[in-house]
């Protein structure tokens, strides 16, 4: 079509797809709360149902990830570094991976969380979800960042969102340490193999917040350039 080459100059921006991917991830992570509730209540049918949901959402996010990667040819000229986009994408994807791991281990071993740890574990999961939501908030500032072409005001705004994210992640670290101590104190009364896997569940759960934080630090790198 005539005049097509003026429109040809506009490549498809990765920002919106990146945000959509993150929305998908948040939705996936949020499933973890009802999942853990079902596990703690011993409601296995709910638990299995939600687990399938998590796996589905993770798959959808995976598809989005692959589409977005294909949309980034090297001839694109962008205000954000191509590598940073791909890194953020990978980190976002790994958040969902950690969620799937947690639910997978619990389902696979039909695990029960020991009574004394329950409240603390529920709290840890809630904080992890919160950290991902915080990372999502930062990512959703990307279009505003580009609108202001990385203006100082907008950088500050994103910066403060990211330091809040760091703070949340620190909280999850503390919560995990508390839970590890609790588990250590109970080790003698529990099946050794179960103990091993409980440690792994704790580890994977805290990994969710850890990866959410890495999404943030990649975003920080984008700001720095």
């Amino acid at each position: 079509m005539a005049g097509g080459y003026l429109s040809g100059i506009f490549g498809s921006s990765p920002v919106r797809p990146l945000q959509t991917h993150m929305e998908q991830i948040v939705e996936c992570v949020q499933q973890l709360i009802p999942f853990i509730n079902a596990v703690l209540d011993g409601n296995t049918s709910d638990r299995d149902h939600i687990h399938r949901n998590i796996v589905d959402l993770e798959h959808k996010a995976d598809k989005l990830k692959k589409e977005l990667r294909l949309r980034l040819p090297s001839s694109l000229f962008m205000p954000i570094d191509r590598r940073d986009v791909l890194e953020v994408l990978t980190m976002q994807d790994r958040v969902a991976g950690a969620v799937r791991d947690v639910s997978g281990i619990i389902i696979g071993r039909n695990m029960v969380i020991p009574e004394p740890m329950r409240d603390n574990y529920r709290e840890l999961v809630a904080t992890c979800v919160q950290s991902v939501e915080q990372a999502h908030q930062a990512i959703s500032e990307l279009d505003e960042l580009i609108e202001t072409s990385f203006g100082d005001k907008e950088r500050e705004r994103v910066g403060s969102l990211l330091s809040e994210l760091d703070r949340i992640e620190q909280t999850t670290d503390e919560q995990t340490i508390t839970l590890s101590h609790q588990l250590f104190d109970m080790e003698q009364q529990l099946e050794p193999v179960n103990v091993m896997f409980l440690y792994r569940v704790l580890d994977r759960t805290s990994l969710i917040a850890d990866r959410a934080q890495r999404v943030g630090s990649r975003l920080q790198l984008m700001l720095a350039r």
Binding site: G8, F10, S12, S13, P14, S75, F77, S149
Partner: peptide, 9 residues
């Protein structure tokens, strides 16, 4: 740095 993506082709 004002536009999301430009195709330099």
């Amino acid at each position: 740095r004002g536009i999301g993506a430009l195709n330099l082709r």
